[in-house]
């Protein structure tokens, strides 16, 4: 009985926790989206020696 008592303050705390939770979740999604975007058009991220289209300078010399 006493333990199950709900007060307006509990609602406010739930709202606060939900808000922080959603904000953190959104941040995780955003960092993931940023990673994908950077990987997609980031030529510099992949090491030069891992690109198989162009031979390494060492090989051609």
């Amino acid at each position: 009985m006493g333990l199950a008592q709900e007060h307006e303050i509990h609602k406010r705390r739930l709202g606060r926790n939900m808000g922080v939770g959603i904000a953190l979740g959104a941040f995780v999604i955003l960092v993931f989206a940023l990673t994908m975007a950077k990987l997609k058009d980031g030529g510099q991220i992949e090491g030069f020696d891992h690109q198989y289209q162009t031979p390494r300078p060492v090989v051609t010399q």
């Binding site: 008592q5 307006e8 606060r16 939900m18 808000g19």
Partner: peptide
């Protein structure tokens, strides 16, 4: 202890207050 004291938390912030 028959009840939980909530009167001291009446002024506690909601999420909107942090956003403000």
């Amino acid at each position: 202890m028959t009840d939980i004291r909530t009167d001291t938390y009446e002024n506690e912030a909601g999420f909107g207050d942090f956003f403000a």
